[in-house]
Structure formats: structure tokens, C-alpha cells
């Protein structure tokens, strides 16, 4: 998180020195230049309170995932049938489920699974979409037609249905769920990267690089991709909400994380059966999913204002 690095930097003892270094009109090293760029981006980000709320929630979620063993009151899978279906109380902050497991502790550990899925999907889908999109956009012609028709095929299925089909073929399980979701998440990114590439391709700085004798691969990797990055990052952040919901959906249908893993979607699914008498079984994981998706959306919106090259 660049933001954290900077807030500590600014509050360091040599406050004045750091501030001057970061806001200097003349930068004297590549490090200073890029730090300054981040610093001004960070200031712009702070001007959007909703985005800051989103970031705070995400940072909190990250901390919860890291500190899970210390934050959880009980063991994740510790069953106690004598205290099953307890409403929220001092002993069990968010109540207990049908096997007497503490919902709060399970949600805390579940955050790890959610973040694991989100990160893994991003790490697979973003590069895949970027490569396919920029290649199609840069070369045009037949390459473009073939790659984009493949993308269209993937796009024409609803995400969850496609993910279901993949999981059905690969077998249930969290790794397969991640692969399935990633395979549904890259086409929108490829489309976006292609559209960006089409405008970048015809710019003079790409022409100048071609005239220096750069190969197509070099131009795509070193010149086109960095220009597409911001919008792709924004897009994947905004899609994260959908990815989490798809993961939860797969869990809900029993095709994602398998019991007794404390995956939020799976928890919601079991909670559904007890909805009438014990609402907290479904409501608590539902709330966690809602809050996380919302946080990703708010954060993505703020990020767009900072990273969009058109606003610079």
C-alpha cells in the first residue's frame, strides 16, 4: 500500500524535509519522481471520502485476515452442540450456527478465504486479459478478429453459469473455483485493454518508439501495457465485488469451498435453512459479503479518479 508508506513518511520527525522532498517542483531522481507522483495521487484520493471509507474497510479486512488467530474467540471448527443456534450475545458476539460453532470466529477466518480468492483471481485474470487485449489491439487485423471472437464467446455466457460449467468439469473445491472465476473474469479486461490500446497505438510516442527500432513485443510490454495498467487496475477492483459474489455463489451452491471451511458463501448457504428461527446464521456472512463488495466498489471509484490518465 503506497498510501501507508506515505502517511508514515509525512508524520516522521523530519516532517518539513519529507514534505519539501515530496512536493518539490524539480525532481532530481527517478525515485523522487515516482514517489511524488504517488504522493499527489494519494492527496487526490483523500479528497473522496467514500473511497477512503472503502480503503479503510479493505485495510481492516486485511488486518483481520492477518491477525485471525488472535482476533477469533474460538477455534474455527470447534463444535459445541449444547450451544447451537445461539443468538448474538456476550459469549458469542455474532451468535452460533447449527453445529454450535462461533459465527464471529468463522467470519474472521473466512476473510482469509475471501481475500485469497480475490487476490488469486486478480493475479490470473489481469495479466491474461492484458496480454490478450493489448496484443489484439496492437496488431489488429486477423489477430484482433480471432482473439476478440474468443473473448466474445466467453463474454456471451453469464459469469456464474460459465464458472459453474468449469467447476462441474474440474470438480468442486476452492482452487478449481478460483480457476473457474478467473476464466470468467478476464474477457472484460481484455476488451478494456484492447480499447485503450487502439488509442495508444496511433499516438506519436508509439510511432517514435517504432522508429527507434523497437520490436512489437517490446512496444507492447514496455510502452502499451503501462498505459493500460491504471484502467485495468480500476476495472479489476470494481469487478472484485462481482468476483466475491461469484465465489460466494459457488460456495452457496456447494461447488466452491467445501465444508467445514468457513467460506462466507457456504455459511450463507447453510444459514438459509435456519433463516426463519435464527436469522443471524445467514445475515452475518451476508453482511460480510455486502460490506466487502461495497468496499471494493467504493475504493475502485476513488482509484479511477486518481489513476485515470485523462484526469492528469
Amino acid at each position: 500500500m503506497t498510501g501507508n508508506a506515505h502517511s508514515t513518511a509525512v508524520s516522521a520527525p523530519s516532517h518539513q524535509g519529507w514534505h519539501a522532498w515530496l512536493t518539490a517542483e524539480v525532481t532530481t531522481s527517478p525515485r523522487q519522481a515516482s514517489f511524488q507522483r504517488m504522493y499527489f495521487g494519494w492527496l487526490r484520493f483523500l479528497r473522496n471520502p467514500l473511497a477512503v471509507i472503502g480503503l479503510v474497510i479493505l485495510v481492516a479486512l486485511l488486518l483481520v485476515a492477518i491477525l485471525a488467530p488472535w482476533l477469533a474467540q474460538y477455534e474455527v471448527n470447534e463444535q459445541n452442540l449444547t450451544t447451537r443456534l445461539q443468538p448474538p450475545s456476550g459469549d458469542h458476539w455474532l451468535g452460533t450456527d447449527e453445529l454450535g460453532r462461533d459465527i464471529y470466529s468463522r467470519l474472521v477466518y473466512g476473510s482469509r478465504i475471501t481475500l485469497y480468492i480475490a487476490c488469486l483471481v486478480a493475479v490470473i485474470a489481469a495479466p491474461l486479459g492484458l496480454i490478450i487485449g493489448t496484443t489484439a489491439g496492437y496488431f489488429g487485423g486477423w489477430t484482433d478478429t480471432v482473439l476478440m471472437r474468443i473473448t466474445d464467446v466467453f463474454l456471451s455466457f453469464p459469469g456464474l453459469v460459465l464458472a459453474l460449467a468449469f467447476v462441474a468439469a474440474l470438480g468442486p473445491g476452492i482452487e478449481n473455483a478460483v480457476i473457474a472465476i478467473a476464466l470468467t473474469a478476464w474477457p472484460p479486461i481484455a476488451r478494456l485493454a484492447r480499447a485503450e490500446t487502439l488509442t495508444i497505438r496511433s499516438s506519436d510516442y508509439i510511432a517514435a518508439t517504432r522508429i527507434q527500432g523497437a520490436s512489437s513485443v517490446r512496444i507492447i510490454v514496455k510502452h502499451v501495457v503501462p498505459m493500460c495498467m491504471p484502467s485495468v487496475i480500476v476495472r479489476i477492483t470494481l469487478n472484485m465485488a462481482g468476483i466475491i459474489l461469484t465465489a460466494a455463489g459457488l460456495g452457496f451452491l456447494g461447488l466452491g469451498a467445501q465444508p467445514p471451511m468457513p467460506e462466507w458463501g457456504a455459511m450463507l448457504s447453510t444459514g438459509r435453512q435456519y433463516m426463519i428461527g435464527s436469522w443471524w446464521l445467514a445475515a452475518m456472512p451476508g453482511l460480510a459479503i455486502l460490506l466487502t463488495s461495497l468496499a471494493f466498489n467504493l475504493f475502485g471509484d476513488g482509484l479511477r479518479d486518481v489513476l485515470d490518465p485523462r484526469t492528469e
Binding site: A33, T209, I211, P309
Partner: peptide, 17 residues
């Protein structure tokens, strides 16, 4: 053979120093 372009705002990569 090298070339200099018309628009100094478009001929430099905006994210490269």
C-alpha cells in the same frame, strides 16, 4: 534515420521520465 514529431505533448510517453 530519425524523426521529430509535431506535437511535443503527444510524442513523449506520459509515464516515462
Amino acid at each position: 534515420v530519425q524523426m521529430v514529431f509535431q506535437d511535443p505533448y503527444g510524442s513523449l510517453h506520459p509515464r516515462h521520465t
